[in-house]
C-alpha cells in the first residue's frame, strides 16, 4: 500500500466559497455562487441541475488549488463523487403536462405531451453528471466511482478514493460530494442547505497531511449549516483543512475537534 496525502480542497457552503466559507451561517444556498464564474462551462448550464453546477465548480476549484494535477497522466487521474440523484427538473415537463389536457390521461400525455419533452430530460437527472461533466472538462480517464448514499455519499466517495490511490489504481484522486437540498425540508424534517467540497488526494508523502484508507467520517459536525446530504462530510473536512485544523497523527488525518 502506498501513502496517500491530502494536498488541496475546495469549499462551497452556506457560509461562503473557499476561505469565505469558514464562518458560521444559517442553512440555505451558497452565497455568491455563479456557476460560469467558477469554471462551469456556459454551454452545459442548461443541462445541469443546481447540485451538478455546484459539484463541477467545486472540482474546478480543488484542481485550481493544486495546479500540479496537470503533471499526472489523464489515465492516472481518478474522480470519486457522492451525489444524490436528481429527478429530471419538473419544470422541463411542465409544457408536456399542460398539453396533456384536463383531466389528465396517459393517452393524452403520450399523444400531445411527449413531443414537447426535452431530449435530455432524463440525462439531466443522472446522479453521475458531476463525474461525467468534470471528467470531460479536465480529462480524467482513470478509475472512478459515483455513490448515492444519502448523507454518507461523500464519505463513501472519499474512502474509496483513498483505497484507489493506496492500491495504485490512480496517482491522483479528486473526491468529494455535492448536494442541493434547499426546498426539501418536508422530506428531511430539518433545515436544508446546498454545497459542495472536493479534496485532492495524491500518492506519496506530499506536504504534511496523510490520509489512511479507513478515512473516518465527521459525525455531528457542521450541523449548523443545515442538511447538506452527500456534501456534508466533504464540506466538514474541507472547512477544517482550509482552517488549518487538520492534524497529522498516527493513523491518518485527525478530523474531530478534541
Amino acid at each position: 500500500m502506498r501513502p496517500v496525502s491530502l494536498v488541496a480542497a475546495s469549499l462551497f457552503c452556506p457560509a461562503g466559497i473557499g476561505a469565505n466559507g469558514l464562518g458560521p451561517a444559517a442553512p440555505g444556498p451558497v452565497p455568491g455562487f455563479a456557476p460560469h464564474a467558477h469554471g462551469v462551462p456556459r454551454k452545459h448550464l442548461k443541462t445541469m441541475t443546481r447540485a451538478v453546477q455546484l459539484g463541477c465548480a467545486a472540482v474546478y476549484a480543488a484542481l485550481e488549488d493544486w495546479p500540479t494535477w496537470r503533471m499526472v497522466p489523464a489515465e492516472r487521474r481518478g474522480l470519486y463523487v457522492g451525489a444524490s440523484p436528481q429527478q429530471g427538473d419538473a419544470e422541463d415537463i411542465e409544457p408536456a403536462l399542460q398539453a396533456a389536457g384536463t383531466p389528465f390521461t396517459l393517452g393524452g400525455f403520450a399523444e400531445r405531451g411527449v413531443p414537447m419533452i426535452p431530449p435530455l430530460w432524463l440525462v439531466k437527472g443522472l446522479s453521475n453528471n458531476i463525474l461525467g461533466y468534470s471528467s470531460a472538462q479536465f480529462d480524467f480517464q482513470g478509475d472512478n466511482g459515483n455513490w448515492c448514499d444519502g448523507g454518507h455519499g461523500g464519505s463513501v466517495a472519499l474512502t474509496n478514493a483513498v483505497h484507489a490511490v493506496a492500491e495504485g489504481r490512480v496517482d491522483l484522486a479528486v473526491a468529494g460530494g455535492a448536494d442541493a437540498l434547499v426546498g426539501a425540508e418536508a422530506l428531511f424534517g430539518a433545515p436544508c442547505a446546498e454545497g459542495a467540497a472536493f479534496l485532492v488526494l495524491v500518492a506519496g508523502e506530499v506536504g504534511k497531511t496523510r490520509v489512511t484508507a479507513g478515512l473516518p467520517t465527521v459525525e455531528g459536525a457542521e450541523r449548523d449549516l443545515g442538511e447538506l446530504g452527500a456534501a456534508g462530510v466533504p464540506i466538514a473536512i474541507a472547512r477544517q483543512w482550509l482552517a488549518g485544523l487538520l492534524e497529522v497523527r498516527a493513523g491518518g488525518i485527525h478530523l474531530f475537534r478534541d
Partner: peptide, 18 residues
C-alpha cells in the same frame, strides 16, 4: 477495471477509447 470516457455525457467515445 474502470475508466471514464472523458468525452461526452451521453455518447460513448466513437473509437471506444474508454
Amino acid at each position: 477495471g474502470t475508466s471514464v470516457d472523458a468525452h461526452n455525457v451521453t455518447a460513448p467515445h466513437p473509437d471506444g477509447h474508454g
